[in-house]
């Protein structure tokens, strides 16, 4: 029974479209241009960009509506404050270090002065220095003015 049925079903293959119509239909179809691939790709790219933009806008709007701060690592106020405080501490430490070095230098200079004769009071040195100074050709008008005021 089933074999008989299957044979009869195969007979349905005898139903075919009209050949002239088939040929005419194919000619009409082939006269149409195919959809351009570039257009499809561009549409796809445009769609993706639109989706990304839309999602970004939605996220921003949602954040504004819900008053949720935008947490960007570079713009986090507490983090920036902590960084600034860290910098100040470092600066202070540097100042402390440099002032301790300076005080050591001063101590050394004072010790050396105390141990040796005060060179700046040596008469020979003072005489040489006074020879190098030209009192006649000085050109400092501010000093002149100051002396004049003192005289008055």
């Amino acid at each position: 029974m089933q074999d008989e049925l299957l044979k009869k079903l195969k007979l349905l293959k005898s139903i075919e479209p009209d050949r002239d119509w088939s040929r005419a239909s194919l000619n009409v179809i082939l006269s149409q241009k195919q959809a351009r691939r570039h257009a499809t790709e561009w549409h796809s790219l445009f769609f993706r960009l639109s989706m990304i933009t839309a999602v970004f806008v939605l996220v921003v709007l949602a954040a504004q509506k819900t008053n949720v701060p935008m947490k960007l690592a570079g713009l986090d106020a507490s983090q920036l404050k902590a960084e600034a405080e860290g910098l100040q501490i470092k600066l202070e430490l540097a100042e402390v270090t440099s002032s301790s070095v300076e005080s050591k230098n001063i101590n050394t200079a004072l010790t050396q002065t105390a141990e040796s004769e005060p060179g700046h009071l040596n008469t020979l040195v003072l005489t040489k220095e006074s020879e190098g100074i030209q009192f006649e050709n000085y050109e400092n008008s501010d000093i002149d003015e100051a002396l004049r005021q003192l005289a008055d």
Partner: peptide
């Protein structure tokens, strides 16, 4: 109707074959 629909099927297939 079958002819018309068949024509439309192959028209779509040809114009959108890149899909």
């Amino acid at each position: 109707e079958a002819e018309d629909l068949t024509h439309q099927v192959f028209m779509k297939a040809w114009t959108n074959i890149r899909e």
